[in-house]
Design a protein around this nucleic acid. Sequence first.
DNA 1: TGAATATAATAAACACTGTTTAGTAAATGC
DNA 2: GCATTTACTAAACAGTGTTTATTATATTCA
Lengths: 204, 204
Amino acid sequence: MAIKERKEREKQEMRNLIIESATQLFLKQGYDKTSIRSIADDIEYSPATIYLYFKDKDEIFYVIHENAFDLLDKELRQHDAIADPFERLGALGRTYMQFGIENPDYYDLMFIMRAPMEQIKNEEKWKAGECAFGYLLTTLAECLEQKKIRPADLHVTAIQVWSYVHGLVSLYVRERMCILMQTDEITRQILHSSFDLFLANLKT
Amino acid sequence: MAIKERKEREKQEMRNLIIESATQLFLKQGYDKTSIRSIADDIEYSPATIYLYFKDKDEIFYVIHENAFDLLDKELRQHDAIADPFERLGALGRTYMQFGIENPDYYDLMFIMRAPMEQIKNEEKWKAGECAFGYLLTTLAECLEQKKIRPADLHVTAIQVWSYVHGLVSLYVRERMCILMQTDEITRQILHSSFDLFLANLKT
DNA sequence: TGAATATAATAAACACTGTTTAGTAAATGC
DNA sequence: GCATTTACTAAACAGTGTTTATTATATTCA
């Protein structure tokens, strides 16, 4: 009865095919232009077939959203080796910002768009988000323990750090930084200077 | 030849009627569900008529976006009388956050959504945004002058403040604060505590 | 092996969306 | 009173996400 297993494998392969196509189209043309029909066209199946493998469009983008978190997670974990928690905090922030600036569409899906969060509501918890946030929490806990940063409630401090880098990246990604009336290059420099200043103010 | 003037007046009245209906529907059902057809239905005209008064849907929402900025501006100007610039800065931040939390749809349109910015690109400058940002700049300039906050570049500091409050509000509005796994009430309290902490760190 | 059943895929439709075009009816100018 | 401009709309166009009924293929079992 290996047929059932083969069928399961084929089902998973088809899901992967859809996700790969959707991801590629999403990164090339953005969310709105990535329609079910365009994905179907790309993989040379009918639009209705996609609904045999995914409940709706949101479910597809929820998977892409999870994959994007894996990517960010990998980049953040590169700094595991940094012993000093405050230095690690700085590295995490810079890497987070760089990720957002270099992958604006992924960042959008992860932290700005409503679409994948609709899916999350049916799940009770935001797994991917919790993982990255958890990493920030442990780093900050170390910072507080070693009195590297000003004493304050752990969660309040975490929200402070995350909101801050998210504010910078999301204003940049959604093109509100245009009020500075500077080139993209200079704007990004200001973003990084601003983060450095923030870190300095956080220090004891 | 007062006919021309009356015609102009009627044209403006029709534009207002459309904007009023669109605003009301937008605040009730959000952007996506506010279709041209639903506005047409509401004002009892055909959908095509709307296109005689507005170029496209974006142009309608650009006007709503401007009105929302007027609203925020009015609330921010309430603090003009506060003599101490640092105290005024705190009041501005709290009012900004409150505005976003109480008017999530307006906030979305003003600082998160892509739609109205397409319109803004054709205008060379972001009038409404510049006005509010300018107010922040002058307040911060006073703070720096009177050495109420840590010395730093004016624009970098402004971006820092704005990004910070925007980060808090936008994560809240787009439901990412769910990682805290707290009630809405407590989440909002954390938001405010976080801002207080931020201000304290900014102080000299 | 052959008939019955289960699975996979799709064409076509449904109910929407923003927007354009062609045509009608009313107001205005002369 | 007639020609012209203006205001409006029905219908169509080209999309969207999603569902349903149908067909073709693969699997099971007698």
